[in-house]
Simulated assay, not measured.
Amino acid sequence: MLLTATQSLAFLAAAVLITLSPGPDNLMVLSLGASRGHKRGMVFGLGCALGCLNHTLLAALGVSALIAASVVAFTALKIAGGLYLIYLGVRALKSRGSALAANNGGGSSETLRALFLKGLFANSINPKVVLFFLAFLPQFVDTAQGHAGWQIAQLGLLFTLQAAVLFGTLGYFAGRVGQWLARNPKGGLWLDRVAGGIFVGLGLRLMVSR
């Protein structure tokens, strides 16, 4: 059972906004691209994006098992995930805007393969991203269609693809984007406010959903 067009478009709209909002991954891509060049920024960004496949697998297996085995366990997961999303949202709403990491300058002796694996590893082992995927992906599952695990796998793949495109683009234009953020601190502030509202809304929706 493939995702419906409505599911895919709604999910992509939210995923793109969340991916573009200031956060550790895209800020690392911007910083690395600005300091080490467009090619290295793109490769590192692609590594970060493909790390989402690990979280997709965990989310698909974990949510499917919870749905099949325990209503209580799944409710507990929804509450924990909802509270975590609200926590992220409140932090974003209270922030004064994100700043780029300092440019450490110069070239790098790291190979493209090493940078790709570095991005992949950094994303794959992040436990907060695991919890985020468990909380975010089920929002767009249509329970009437069944096969929740398969739907989550498709959503995760869609998230990974759009993240690969956006992170690769951020890496390529890292120099220009970094300069714009440095000149326009209110841009980061505005994106934080949008992201905060999305996180809080999704967290509340997750906690009250049936």
Rank of each mutant, 00 (worst) to 15 (best):
M1G: 15
T4D: 12
A5V: 15
L9I: 14
A13N: 08
A13Q: 15
A14C: 13
A14N: 11
L17R: 08
I18G: 01
P22Q: 08
N26F: 04
M28L: 13
L32Q: 05
G33I: 05
S35M: 01
G37E: 02
R40S: 09
G41P: 01
M42N: 01
V43Y: 01
G47V: 00
A49V: 09
A49K: 01
C52M: 10
N54K: 13
N54L: 11
L58K: 03
L58C: 04
A60S: 15
L61S: 10
L61I: 11
V63C: 06
V63M: 09
A65V: 09
A68E: 13
A69I: 11
S70P: 12
L77C: 13
K78E: 07
K78G: 06
L83D: 03
Y84R: 04
L85E: 02
L88Y: 02
L88N: 07
R91K: 14
S95P: 00
S95D: 08
R96G: 15
G97I: 07
A99M: 08
L100M: 07
N104D: 15
S108C: 09
T111M: 11
R113S: 08
L115K: 00
F116R: 05
L117G: 09
F121Y: 13
N126D: 07
P127D: 02
F132V: 01
F133P: 03
P138S: 10
Q139D: 11
F140L: 10
T143P: 10
H147F: 15
A148S: 14
Q151A: 10
Q151P: 00
Q154H: 13
L155R: 03
L158T: 08
F159D: 03
Q162Y: 07
A163R: 00
A164E: 11
V165M: 08
V165C: 06
V165T: 02
L166G: 06
L166C: 09
G168I: 05
T169N: 00
L170S: 09
G171I: 03
G171P: 00
A174M: 00
A174K: 01
G175I: 03
G178V: 10
L181C: 12
P185T: 15
K186H: 15
G187E: 02
L189P: 01
D192Y: 01
G196S: 02
G196C: 08
G196M: 01
G196P: 10
V200D: 04
L202S: 06
G203I: 05
L204F: 09
M207V: 14
M207P: 05
S209M: 12
